[in-house]
Amino acid sequence: MSPILECRNLSKKYGYKEALSGIDLSVERGRIVGLLGPNGSGKSTLIKLSNGLLTPTNGELIINNMPVGPETKKIVSYLPERTYLNNWMKVCDIIDFFADFYENFDKNKAYEMLKRLNINAKDRLKTMSKGTKEKVQLILVMSRQADLYLLDEPIGGVDPAARDYILNTIISNYNPDGTIIISTHLISDIEQILDDIIFIQNGTIVKTASVDDIRSQEGKSVDALFREVFRC
């Protein structure tokens, strides 16, 4: 099968600053991939290019054999770093909104997950803590039957117990043929759910490997390898 995401000589410049410099990358289907790199390495830029929020300066980005556009947005589910949902809305209204917007949105699944996480669908977002808001947003994203999930820092704002719960939500609710790309620097927390990793630094791909290979060849965790590769 063809890769779900492919970058060919992909570059992005913000003015004179180069955020991505000619990267070549291919991500397979049915994998959970960690996009790992220090702050300002280009993680969010790559994710935003993949969902069409940014356009490349140079090169190509292909998703499911198509250039990024309305057709690929149908099959890409994106969790942004910051929330874009309206604070005054109730969770159940947002769910209706999403169901209207995305034909692959599964309302039942969303309500099921809310129930499991003890979130009341009648609550308004503004009454919720930062962590609960993050959970709601993740539920919305994972309730779509997408081919590619792009999660930008999904566990940044929640406590370690909730983190475990969120990771659990991710692995138990994603569609097994789908691919999940998770960008984060909380590596040790997500390491055990990853298949593959992409190390990115200064806008270039430093390493791609499977987690098992890293552990058996290097005899250390991805977290330890990350600290070594990106030592300041």
Binding site: R31, L167, N168, I171, Q192, I193, L194, D195, D212
Partner: peptide, 17 residues
Amino acid sequence: VRDLAEEAAVNPNTMQK
């Protein structure tokens, strides 16, 4: 596989392997 993966909090692909 799915239940075992959930129990161990690992990726189902890894459990499958």
